[in-house]
Design a protein around this nucleic acid. Structure first.
Lengths: 207, 207
DNA sequence: AACCGGCCGTGACAGATGTCATCCGTGTCA
DNA sequence: TGACACGGATGACATCTGTCACGGCCGGTT
């Protein structure tokens, strides 16, 4: 028979072993796809991609070490010929925006039907965009941060429960100033407390 | 050849289609396991279990409709011969405690290696316990709620951002009383704000 | 040069938050 | 029967939170 196209070499990264193993099994059943590496941490992605000669990296976002978006940027910098498909639980507009900025070719959420994953891998391998139009639209609308740099500074600290007093010390500002930035951020996120504001900003990818 | 044992009929419930499909593929490769139903909502579990004649239900916890623990109780009530294996992202002691109380035979987290899932299904099918000893210990220690009924009442409302004024109206208490219960709950959970207290209590399964 | 808008920064203030001391009713125990 | 512990409930109070009005600086526009 005519020579076959060599299979697409795929690296899988997900911190949940069960999910990773199941996805490896799913993709491994495709005749034209071969899972050549599996890692559970973001900071293992690049070396594993290099060693395994992966054509496509399928990355979750929330992982120990570095996250999947940071791993994406690292992979693209080190292996320009290697494409990245982000597969994540949360279809956050901010995630999509940052992932594309980091060089990801595709972005799917775990709500996607399983049979579409292999097709997404094939398309990404060919350099074609794979992403949900609704999510893209939402990213366009929500993804644009309206926070100033200082507002982001104080929200990041607020995210970890740091008091106004501590934030003012850390950023060399008066407490009134910190409260004013927090208040402004609360308004821009449409929330009622700094905790909600920080969480919403993070979900939108503004932090 | 000698007659084979009929395969174990398994129902899969997970709101993430990709994960569910991948797990179905993984389990479907086992000669003695047959995936007979897949659902994405907790409130579809019972009817699907009945229709498919499932021997084992593999349930995620966080799903639309009712959660996997409520679904467990419903399955056990309706089909006493059907065993439940909980497969969840968060190995929260409170979840384990509530799952066992609801009648689950097994409880694994998604950090488990993929190859152990089929074995877990087989063991659960035989009525054997499947759970992580470390998680069981942690559940024993943390899972016991130290909150009073009223503290739980106010924390549940605090979880959704309800103000003290609203909580006092809803529970027919004075605002001072509500603050006192919130303060007590903050102390018992070792936190600093009612938001943290509510979140920690939920994680521990105290709510 | 003058004006304007936005960001950065500040302090005053009203209202919200969490702590504390206290009281009452109920159940348990000696 | 009396003492005690506990949960439920309350209000006073110190502190914190978020809003608001304001000023300075900078860059862009007229």
């Amino acid at each position: 028979m005519v020579s076959e196209t060599p299979p697409i070499r795929v690296l899988l990264a997900d911190d949940q072993a069960l999910v990773r193993g199941a996805l490896a099994t799913l993709l491994g059943l495709e005749p034209d796809i071969e899972v050549v590496a599996e890692v559970g941490r973001g900071d293992e992605v690049v070396s594993a991609a290099v060693q395994s000669g992966a054509h496509v990296c399928v990355l979750d976002i929330e992982m120990p070490g570095i996250d999947g978006i940071e791993a994406t940027a690292a992979v693209r910098a080190r292996l320009p010929g290697c494409h990245v498909l982000i597969v994540t639980t949360f279809g956050r507009p901010g995630y999509l925006k940052r992932a594309l900025a980091a060089g990801a070719t595709g972005f799917v959420v775990k709500d996607t039907p399983a049979r579409q994953l292999a097709d997404a891998v094939r398309r990404v391998h060919q350099g074609l965009r794979v992403l949900d139009p609704a999510l893209a639209t939402s990213s366009l609308i929500e993804g644009e941060s309206h926070l100033t740099e200082r507002e982001r500074d104080v929200l990041r600290l607020a995210l970890t429960g740091t008091t106004v007093a501590d934030i003012s010390v850390r950023l060399h500002l008066s407490q009134g100033t910190v409260r004013n930035y927090l208040s402004s951020a609360i308004g821009k996120t449409g929330t009622h407390t700094r905790y909600e504001a920080a969480r919403v900003a993070q979900e939108r990818g503004w932090l």
